[in-house]
């Protein structure tokens, strides 16, 4: 690789905490790498763990999921479900040999613009270390 690998990271953020935290990072002009692209969902509990598999298959080199800190969920409990489900997915991915650095999860509150930057930097650093995930890409069907 002559040029540095620029990983493609898909992030799922809950509307109330991390999405607002990412907005705050913007308002505060906190600079971070441009590799992370955000899909807004209402709650981290909305994130079907199979989205992670799908994103990796469809071209993502890494996936990031972020929601409210435990106890702070706008919907009271959604992040607790997310935590349990995504832990299982993480175990499964690791067991099947997917580089664990391709999957990150964080709690970032609406006031943690700085933490959001750190989380993004970590996700990008991790995905660079893991490299492009071409082995798993959805193949085009041609005949």
């Amino acid at each position: 690789m002559s040029e540095q690998f620029k990983p493609n990271i898909v992030a799922f953020l809950c509307n109330w905490c991390t999405y607002a935290g990412a907005d705050l990072a913007g308002t505060s002009r906190i600079q971070y790498p441009a590799n992370v692209k955000i899909i807004r969902v209402m709650c981290s509990g909305r994130v079907n763990p199979l989205y992670v598999v799908n994103a990796l298959q469809q071209g993502a080199d890494g996936v990031l999921i972020s929601g409210c800190h435990p106890g702070d969920c706008h919907y009271m409990e959604g992040n607790y479900y997310a935590r349990r489900r995504l832990k299982l997915l993480k175990e499964l991915l690791e067991f099947t040999g997917v580089d664990p650095r391709r999957f990150n999860m964080s709690w970032v509150s609406a006031s943690e613009g700085h933490k959001w930057k750190e989380v993004v930097e970590k996700a990008v650093e991790d995905a660079i270390a893991a490299g492009p995930f071409d082995q798993f890409r959805r193949r085009q069907i041609g005949w």
Partner: peptide, 26 residues
């Protein structure tokens, strides 16, 4: 309230939050 936690926990994806359906997110 439309949080969608039910949807991610449904094995047959038979409950879907409007505007945040699987067919809209995928």
């Amino acid at each position: 309230k439309g949080c969608g936690s039910c949807s991610a926990g449904c094995l047959s994806n038979s409950i879907q939050p409007r505007s945040f359906r699987d067919r809209q997110i995928l």
